[in-house]
Design a protein around this nucleic acid. Structure first.
Lengths: 350, 350
DNA sequence: CTGTTAGCGCATTCAT
DNA sequence: ATGAATGCGCTAACAG
């Protein structure tokens, strides 16, 4: 088997506790023995047993990340960022993919707890608030990302979707568009609701009546985009611009516009939500509202580790955030590329 | 803190070992006490401490998956499949993303070992064979996927790239193409070399001279595709078909063809490698050679767990595969869509 | 079938 | 500054 602390101690003719202190840092040992033990441990190829240490200290150095899938571009970068940040901080990432299914989410939350993760970052379905609260109560910090869980009072890092959708819609309005189709996510999700609200606010502010026929909310799938796009295009007065604020729908929209040989942006302006290399490389390059997935992940990690370390330091109270669950917002950013055109010339049409 | 086995035992007025046996399955306890303990444990909300169990049994129920990134479609589905399969089998996935960087890979291998993973699935860079062999020696089964590590003798699950590239090239030849451009991955990777070899074999078999000018090998990036595509298109006699056997390059190729207003497949036939929803939804739908990422992952998990359980059962020998490192191949599948056209009519040109 | 005993490898308290 | 002793929670002999 592998070499243990005891082996190192024996080789150095000291007790295990001395070895532990010397290697564990903290300067609890004399300078000389510390150097010596470090050397001997190196020679023997000693590596501390994380499991044993975990049992003793109650810390697993494991953090869970629970997301819906890896097909979505935002989740991809979030997973990459979270794992990179955690590794740099000496933690490992336990990745769980729950497919937006409450049952699976519940299951995985249990498993994560069994593995005694030191913390958890989760994109909640919203149907396991009790379970999440229970983790918090069990002294496992939880940070929600992207969606809020209304059942539980949890620290949450959200994209500023009201602002993002508002900015995107405003951009299209500024370009002269009056009939702007919106394809948005399910209304039982935070992002779905908030993007719709941003769209509506921008319209109202510009004194444009909100036409229900131009709004399509649906599941996060390419098919949703295809169906919605056809519906919108077939309207008596079709929109001149489409705001696809449901990331996965973009695929379906792109297909339908291609099938109908619509030129973007000449025949139809297109603005999408959540950036991905595909949008950037696509010709014409697709303009997007970047939700800041990278920063969302970074902030979530920051908040989580802040709390994990607070918990370790002064093992104060029940770990609950005394000030209640704070909510953070990461601003969206409009990235103008080539898929939206100005309607200005048409002003002379009248 | 959380409720321990001892708590359950006390509540049931039995010893901890009885409790352990009753809950641990295996029927080592009487039917009645088993039922009773199960009930009491449930009432108390007992959950076994994975860490403590791991320390005792030497199993962490953790399996590492080490890949290059999550942007690549194959890696995405592999990660999803591996995590789903492992979860179903009672394991958790520790996901590491090493960016194809040997240094990071080495680092992460160390961390994974520290966490005492029960096994490891890795897409090796090829520069840490010694480290991987060391893990095997330390009784941690390792399965390589997608790429082989030539330095070490490890069980490996590969795509059948020679066959896939051969089939793809043959398909294009069958359509009447004679000048087929190839954009392929780095030649210091298994897949890069093998896809090139399959392409060449198909050409030779059809008595078509291999023109070096039609072959471009490069890094796994969109930019590679853009550069290569321009180069190929600017040839005195440009290819009539492009075989893009470097997945990430497809983005660059698609951009360049769009910029030059080339119609696919009318002006240029396009065949890509590794399937993704984007190819399917794209118009025209892109024909591909599907490398079978899903099956690759499934097989890797099968092999790994086979060995993990063999190790646990009869704790025989050093865990090394007595018969040497076996290699498995998952066949590629040609998926014909709408991006390749037949050149047959041109036969009358002569 | 059940209770008793003994660690797994480590960090930590208490002595020295 | 170091050593000896204790226990984290659990499983696995070993007895009865």
């Amino acid at each position: 088997m592998s070499v243990t602390l005891k082996d190192v101690a024996e080789a150095a003719r000291v007790s295990v506790s001395t070895a532990s202190r010397a290697l564990g840092g903290g300067g609890l040992a004399s300078e000389r023995t510390q150097q010596r033990l470090l050397r001997i441990a190196g020679e023997l190829g000693y590596r501390p047993n994380t499991i044993a240490r975990g049992l003793k200290t109650g810390q697993s150095r494991l953090v869970g990340l629970l997301i819906h899938n890896l097909a979505n571009a935002s989740f991809q970068v979030m997973a990459e960022v979270v794992q990179a940040r955690l590794k740099a901080l000496g933690y490992q990432m336990l990745l769980c993919i729950a497919g937006d299914d409450p049952q699976q989410e519940s299951d995985m939350l249990g498993t994560l707890a069994d593995h005694r993760v030191d913390g958890l970052i989760v994109v909640p379905t919203g149907r396991n608030g009790a379970r999440l609260a229970q983790l918090e109560a069990g002294d496992i910090p939880v940070v929600c990302v992207v969606r809020r869980d209304d059942e539980a009072e949890l620290e949450t890092v959200l994209a500023d979707d009201p602002q993002g959708a508002y900015a995107g819609t405003r951009y299209l309005i500024g370009l002269g568009h009056r009939r702007i189709g919106l394809i948005v996510g399910r209304q039982d999700t935070t992002s779905g609701r908030e993007r719709l609200s941003g769209y509506i606010r921008a319209l109202r502010e510009a004194d444009i009546a909100v036409d229900e026929a131009l709004i399509h909310a649906g599941r996060y799938e390419p098919e949703t985009g295809a169906v919605a796009c056809r519906k919108l295009l077939d309207l008596a007065t079709p929109p001149t611009a489409l705001f696809v604020a449901n990331h996965e729908s973009a695929l379906g929209v792109l297909r339908v516009t291609a099938e109908r040989r619509l030129s973007i942006p000449d025949d139809l302006s297109l603005l999408c939500y959540e950036d991905t290399p595909w949008f950037e490389w696509h010709r014409p390059a697709i303009s997007v509202v970047d939700n800041g997935a990278r920063d969302l992940a970074n902030l979530a990690v920051d908040r989580l580790l802040h709390r994990i370390e607070a918990r370790n330091g002064h093992n104060a109270g029940n770990g609950h955030n005394a000030e209640g669950a704070r909510e953070y917002r990461v601003g969206a950013r409009l990235v103008k590329r080539d898929s939206c055109r100005s309607l200005a010339p048409q002003a002379s049409e009248a």
